[in-house]
């Protein structure tokens, strides 16, 4: 039926003869469009999250939801490290003026180490196996997010 060369005047769409071009049925095209829009929204949201200006200068290290250490990165003058005891393993956290990273860890996936320096943006450093999270928070006044996570 779809291959016949007929013009459907009623809905303004034409069923075209077989050509080299792949033509999806209307329902599939709606799905493609919807998913493409969803993807674009995610892309925009990801860009906002990553490019969020870094005005929050306090690095908060928590293990299993409890804050174990807070470092004011603007007060850091020289690079230094300390070891954090996570759940089932340890992470070596390194700070430098304005930045923080996990420099070593005995977790299996090493995702926290590969994440590199955290110097801004909303995405925290996370080591899921050890339940360790390092996030940037604004010091002192504390916003809504701090109230929840703290």
């Amino acid at each position: 039926m779809g291959n016949e060369k007929v013009t459907l005047k009623g809905n303004g769409r034409r069923s075209e003869p077989l050509s080299g071009k792949i033509k999806f049925p209307i329902q599939t095209r709606v799905w493609i469009g919807t998913l493409a829009i969803a993807f674009a929204v995610c892309l925009a949201a990801a860009a906002v999250v990553w490019l969020l200006p870094g005005s929050r200068r306090v690095a908060r290290v928590s293990v299993d939801g409890a804050v174990v250490r807070e470092i004011d990165l603007s007060a850091v003058t020289a690079e230094g490290s300390f070891v954090v005891e996570g759940v089932g393993g340890t992470n070596t956290v390194t700070v430098r003026p304005g930045g923080v990273c996990v420099s070593a860890a005995d977790c299996p996936d090493q995702v926290c180490v590969k994440r590199g320096w955290l110097e801004g943006g909303a995405a925290p450093i996370v080591c899921l196996p050890h339940r360790l999270v390092i996030e940037l928070v604004s010091g002192g006044d504390g916003n809504a997010l701090d109230a929840i996570s703290g």
């Binding site: 998913l35 969803a38 993807f39 995610c42 892309l43 949201a45 990801a46 999250v49 928590s62 299993d64 939801g65 943006g121 909303a122 995405a123 925290p124 996370v126 899921l128 339940r131 999270v133 996030e135 997010l145 929840i148 996570s149």
Partner: peptide, 23 residues
Amino acid sequence: VAVAVTRTPALLAYLPVLLMSGM
């Protein structure tokens, strides 16, 4: 689960990237 386990809502920042990779 990650937010519940670590009790860190800030992990939601990873959601857009995760959704993109998932799609």
